[in-house]
Simulated assay, not measured.
Amino acid sequence: MHYYTNITLPQEIVLSLRETSENIVKNMKKTVAIKYYKENKLSLGQCAELSEMSKEEFIQLLSTYKISIFNFENDEELLEDIKNA
């Protein structure tokens, strides 16, 4: 595992959130993983790894934000996929 930078959190923020710095950083990783997944910058597996979750856990996290793991450009593509199932 590579560590490229340290994240410094202002004490006031940590106190306001009433969470440990470790939990805040974990939440930041999850948020960034969701962002990169939505932008198709990283795969599902890479995002799960970034968020320190299993693929199944990451899929569940996506569902809580109503983000589908099925990406279709349009309705015709979806209908074609269903027809071929």
Rank of each mutant, 00 (worst) to 15 (best):
L50A: 00
L9A: 09
N6S: 12
V32W: 11
D81S: 13
N40M: 11
I13R: 14
E22G: 11
N74S: 02
N6M: 12
E80Q: 10
K26M: 13
T20K: 14
E39H: 04
E80N: 03
P10R: 15
E52P: 01
E22A: 12
S68M: 13
L62S: 03
S43T: 05
E39P: 04
S43W: 01
Y36R: 04
G45S: 06
M28T: 09
N74W: 00
G45M: 10
I24F: 02
T64R: 10
D81Q: 11
K29R: 07
V25Q: 06
E76A: 05
I67V: 07
E77C: 01
K66G: 15
I7F: 04
Q11W: 10
K55G: 11
K30V: 05
L61N: 08
A85K: 15
F70V: 10
L15E: 12
K83Q: 15
V25Y: 03
I34P: 03
H2K: 08
K30A: 08
C47H: 02
L79T: 12
T5I: 03
E39Q: 08
Y36Q: 06
V32E: 09
A48W: 01
K29H: 05
L9G: 10
F70R: 13
Y4M: 01
G45R: 08
L17S: 10
L44V: 01
N27C: 08
E49A: 05
L79Y: 01
Y65S: 11
I13S: 11
E56H: 15
E19W: 10
